[in-house]
Amino acid sequence: MTDPARWTTPAGVAAVVRRRWDDGMLPRAFALDEPFPRVEVPLRGPSAADLGEYFDAARAWADAVNRGSRDGRAYHVLRGRIGGRLAGVTELPTRAVVESYAQAWQLLGTARDADAFRAVVAASLDVPTARAWALTSPQRAVALAGEWATLLSAHRWLADHRDSGRYLREVSAPGVDTKFIERHRSVLAAMLGVPSDATRFAEALGFAVKPATVRLRCDPAVVGLPSGVTEATLRVDELDRLRARPDRALIVENEVTYLSVPVPDGSVVLWGKGYDADRAASLPWLADVPVLYWGDIDTHGFGILHRVRAHLPHARSILMDRETLLAHEGRWGSESVPTTTAMTGLDPAETALYTDLVTDRFGSAVRLEQERIDWAWAMGRLRDAGW
């Protein structure tokens, strides 16, 4: 005996065909004018033993399967006989067969999407990479059908101006602006075979990117700035060419702290600005200069220190120690999303404190932001470090 609830319904037939649509097989074959890949769906229905107890249900099920075929427009119904000498012979549906695109679109309600996809593929004949992307991503291509002509226009312009060194803002393709490129960057990146991250997208295509800058306070003489200029924001590549010669440097994560620390003669203070700290750390003229890094005492603070050390292995951390953390317990906060990444750029004491933070030794997601450290404590530590 079988449960009528488990008998195959027209929706079950559609689900089988729907999988062929969703995985791209049907729209791809249709767009390429390939023969329809016939789909046969075995129908789970009543057995001969069910007819006695579920006769009315069996008849209703057969009627539903037949109605679902829409007189053969959605699928053909193949029938077979069940029963025998004792129970009598009854003819019931045994298979649903979809053997044309017209039937599949009728069953799924996808005729308009199928036509749109075929038009997308046909429009892309002279842009092979766009056509290849559409054929591998039919559902996404259908969703973009209304903008496909503009996407092709953007693709052609990007490909034609590859390695030009121009800014994307200079795009002149019909209907395309930087907002359009930004909105569809992941698709264009896939078509052009480049990373989808904004900066890497432009760099990989040979376009200009927004220059990296560093903000610093300094003794103007050591950086080559005019007398009286004590702060500047400069492009990293241009700052490198200044051939600065400071006696020492301090990279500070927090902006207000950066503005507050003293700048001794012959020194330079650079705003790290969180994970942008490796911009400052990448300056070649810091390689032979004593460098201090002062960041938050939390997992990401040590993550930034780890990145700074990738450029400046000799950089020393300041005010990122266990004593400072424990002395300011009343000022602790909490990290919203701590990291647990392995930090190979930390020294043993830093590694031990980082491990304590990761394992919640002092509490859940403990952090001490540098702007919460007592100022007299901070200045004393900086003086002891020779600042």
Rank of each mutant, 00 (worst) to 15 (best):
R79T: 13
A74L: 00
D56R: 14
G72S: 09
A49Y: 09
A64E: 12
D71Y: 01
R59Q: 15
D50P: 04
A74S: 04
A62Y: 01
A58I: 08
W61A: 09
A64S: 10
W61Y: 03
A64R: 09
S69K: 03
Y54G: 07
A57I: 07
G68F: 02
A60W: 03
A60L: 13
A62H: 03
D71W: 06
R73Q: 11
F55E: 14
G68A: 08
N66L: 15
S69Q: 00
Y75R: 00
W61L: 07
L51F: 12
D56P: 07
N66P: 06
V77I: 07
G72E: 07
A62V: 04
H76C: 09
D63E: 13
V65W: 04
D56Q: 14
A74W: 00
F55A: 15
V65T: 06
V65C: 09
V77G: 00
G72F: 05
R73V: 11
A57V: 08
A62Q: 08
V65P: 00
D63Q: 10
D71S: 11
Y75P: 01
D71R: 12
A58V: 10
R79M: 10
A58M: 07
A74Y: 00
A60T: 12
A60H: 11
A64L: 07
G68R: 03
L51Y: 10
G72T: 05
A48C: 09
W61G: 04
A58N: 10
A74R: 06
L51A: 10
V77A: 05
R79I: 06
D63Y: 00
W61M: 10
L78Y: 03
R73C: 06
V77R: 00
A74F: 04
R70N: 11
S69V: 00
A57W: 01
A62R: 08
A60K: 09
D63R: 10
G72L: 03
R73D: 11
D71V: 03
F55Y: 12
R73F: 03
D63N: 04
Y54P: 01
A48I: 07
S69N: 02
V77S: 01
V65H: 06
R79P: 03
R73P: 00
Y75A: 02
